[in-house]
């Protein structure tokens, strides 16, 4: 069940914290915290400002699985998976952070 209407997985290394998915989400179910660091690459004349993702959460209790976040991401950091088995005993446990979002699509496909 690859790429079906299941969970949406995150590739945090591809995410630039650009906030597009957060702002396009009709349900307000995505949240991002980030900060920037100055990185000086060898040979570069000036340091470069790089975004570091501190927190990326999707609240599955709210998400309406419209896929706008997947469509809008310019860096393909979000993708559909077939995972469906992530119900919870508490609504708050349906808010998943980077660690869990990265696991989707890696076990059952």
């Amino acid at each position: 069940m690859q790429n079906t209407h299941g969970a949406i997985a995150l590739d945090a290394s591809a995410c630039t914290s650009c906030m597009l998915c957060v702002r396009e989400c009709p349900d307000w179910c995505i949240e991002i915290d980030s900060h920037t660091v100055e990185v000086t690459e060898p040979g570069a004349r000036r340091p470069r400002s790089v975004a570091v993702l501190d927190r990326f959460t999707i609240d599955w209790g709210l998400c309406m699985y419209c896929g706008i976040c997947v469509e809008v991401c310019p860096f393909d950091a979000l993708r559909w998976t077939g995972d469906t088995d992530y119900s919870a005993a508490e609504v708050d446990d349906l808010r998943h952070g980077v660690e869990r979002l990265e696991q989707f699509g890696t076990t059952s496909d």
Binding site: C18, M19, R23, S49, A51
Partner: peptide, 10 residues
């Protein structure tokens, strides 16, 4: 609060 109100980094 709307989570999109935060500015993008940098």
């Amino acid at each position: 609060p709307w989570p999109g109100a935060k500015p993008e980094p940098g």
